[in-house]
Each structure stands twice: as C-alpha cells, then as structure tokens.
Design a protein around this nucleic acid. Sequence first.
DNA 1: GTCTATATTCTGATAGAC
DNA 2: GTCTATCAGAATATAGAC
Lengths: 206, 206
Amino acid sequence: MTAKNIDKSTEEKIITAARKVFTEKGYAATRTRDIAEVAGINLALLNYYFRSKEKLFDLIMMENLHQFMAVVKEIVNDQNTSLDKKLESIAANYIDLLTEQPNLPLFILTEMRHHPQKLVMNMDVKKTLQGSALMKQLAIAAKEGKGVAQHPLHLIMNLMGMIIFPFIASPILLAIGDINDNEFKQLMLERKKLIPIWIKAILKTS
Amino acid sequence: MTAKNIDKSTEEKIITAARKVFTEKGYAATRTRDIAEVAGINLALLNYYFRSKEKLFDLIMMENLHQFMAVVKEIVNDQNTSLDKKLESIAANYIDLLTEQPNLPLFILTEMRHHPQKLVMNMDVKKTLQGSALMKQLAIAAKEGKGVAQHPLHLIMNLMGMIIFPFIASPILLAIGDINDNEFKQLMLERKKLIPIWIKAILKTS
DNA sequence: GTCTATATTCTGATAGAC
DNA sequence: GTCTATCAGAATATAGAC
C-alpha cells in the first residue's frame, strides 16, 4: 500500500491499482493478484467489488479510451481557432498527457487489436472527427498547397505518428540516442513546438 | 492444418504456427495449445521439439527482431547512396515489409517493453545506427537547413513514426477514414513516395 | 467489508503406449 | 516421432468465518 492509498476508499484503491497494472502490462499479462497486492488489499475483495477480472478491465479500458479521446474532442470542433492553433493544441496536450502516462498508447493499440469487440471507440473517434472543423480546415490547407491534395488520412497519420510513436518506442530511442529519461522528456518538450511547424511544412508540399 | 503445412517438417510446422500466433497475440495471451492446433499437431509434440513455451517464444522473438532490423541494416551503412536514396529505400522497404507483416511492430514494441531482459536488440540497433553513413548524412542535412539544427533523434522519430504508426493504428484509421483494407494498402503505397519528400521538407525547417 | 481457506478452471509440461 | 492421458502449478473466483 503506497502513500497514495491513504484516504482512499477500498474501491478507489482497487481502481487505482488496476489502472496502473493493466495499463502497464495489458490484460493477458496481468494477474488479479498483482492488482490486489498493489492496492494493498486481499484478492477476495477485488472480486467482491468488481465480480471479475474482465469487468474491472472493461472499466479501465473505458477510462483510458476516454482520457485519450478527451484531448482531441475539445479541440477538434472549435470553430473559433485557426488550423495552426489546433495543431499546436493537439501536439501540446497529447505530449503533456503522454509524458504523464507513457503507457497509454501501447495499451490502447494493443488491447484494441486483441479485443475488437470492446471497440466502442471506433464510432466515437469517427463521430468526433468526421465533418469536424479540423477536417474542413485540413482540406482547405491541402488545397492551398502546391498541387495535388493528399488524402486527409495522411495528415492524421503524420500528426499522430509524430506525437505518439516516440512514446511507444521510447526504450529503443533511449538506447539509440544514448539519452536518459530527462533528456527524452526535453526532446518531447521541443516537439510540442516543432511538430506543428513540421506539419505545416508537409502541407505545403502537397 | 492449412495447405501451407503440406511438405513441411513437423518442426517447421510448429515454427510457422508459433510465428503466427505469438506475433498476433503476444507472449502472455498465447497458449501453447493454440500453436499446436494451428500447426495441426499435438501439444505434446511442441514440448518434444522445443522443451518450453518460452524457448519457442525466444526463437520467434529473435526471428522477428532480425527481420525488422534487416531492412535498415543493409541501407544505413551504404557509403555510395545519397541521403535521398536512403530515405526512399527505408520507407519503401519498411512499408513493403509491414504490408506483409502488419503485426510486427506492435509485437516488437510490446514484448520489448514487457521483457527488457530479452533485449539483445538495443545494442544491435545502437551499433547499426551510431556513426553510420545515414547519421552523418542527416547531421549534414540538418546543418544545411535554415538555422538551428535539431537533435538527430527527431528525424528518426519522424521517419519511423510516419512509416510504422499507420500499421500500428490501422484499425482506428480504417474507421476514421471509412476505408477498407485495400484502400489502406493503397495509401501505404502512396506513402512510399511521400514520406521521403515530407522528411526533406522537415529537414529544411530546421 | 475484509479476511482465510478452498473450489474450479486453465495451462504448461510430462509419462508412457504405440 | 507422434499420440492419449494425466500431472502439477497457476490463476480466477467463491464460501464462509469474523
């Protein structure tokens, strides 16, 4: 039981522990015993509160998906901000989020692939993006480029790839670049400013 | 037992099945029974040939790492090709590889995080890249830009992110873009040409 | 609500016949 | 080499005392 657990209800302790363990190790590699231990409670209590490993996992999965979507939801449909501002907000907010929770993307991408049944998210992200202010602004920007407009998905792939990939691949990147965790965080800070610039440079090539 | 298994030795059948199941589901979610079933043989035979789940996994892990590294190894240290050509080769070769084996990156990134002990690769990729012809050419290109040279890791992150991320996130991207598998492959084909162009545009902003 | 003890199911691995 | 049957241990879940 860590200091964080003081003053928390048992249910909250279990959820906090489950969030940590599931998000780090994924569903299959997680044992309910690990969660109970991290929560500082007995294994039986976990089932008393949540009935099963799967039900507890579903809760964490929803939480994580929601957290991941929240960043983009509030930005994408703002009619009053420019494309530039939107790119800056998305990059900055995601990098802040992932710096705090670096395991989030690998968790979501892995579990989404392994349990496509649980994919409430697809429709969610689809609804959020399709016909949004951002997509319209992207289409306009693409046309203002040199010539052939690229498929808007290319932009999404580039933007999200540049933001998310470093966190997914951080162990390799730390090794390649001979840098430590703090230097990595510093690079991510730089990327908050750089990614929007790079994306705009890319838009001009189309 | 699929058609592919005809004319294969038992050992090869098991390896082929293990490659498929491990790479799709990861170590923890894979049951040796699944592998045996896909191989069309009995569970006992698996242990007869490979002694344990872990030993069989280690083999597949090595295979996959090797396959993933092979692409970059032969390109990165070629003294006779320009930076442009190297970028083009890396993008084209990786996109070809990942179109055939879309689960490769998620497998490697996940298992690498969960079993850092098995990380023969870190030193491997490090050795391959550090001081390579590619890194020198990148450093030169960065200096020829507008002003402040960025950390070379930024370029690696951007290049690999743009190449790999779409394959990792393909389920979401298919949903967002309302496209099917073939349209996705078409987009990936386009990216073979586009990514080098985009990377060069990014280099000019630094 | 919380614990200990136990039931139940699953899974990796082996024994032994052929 | 290959199979069936089975074991041993692990992991989820529950029973029942407090």
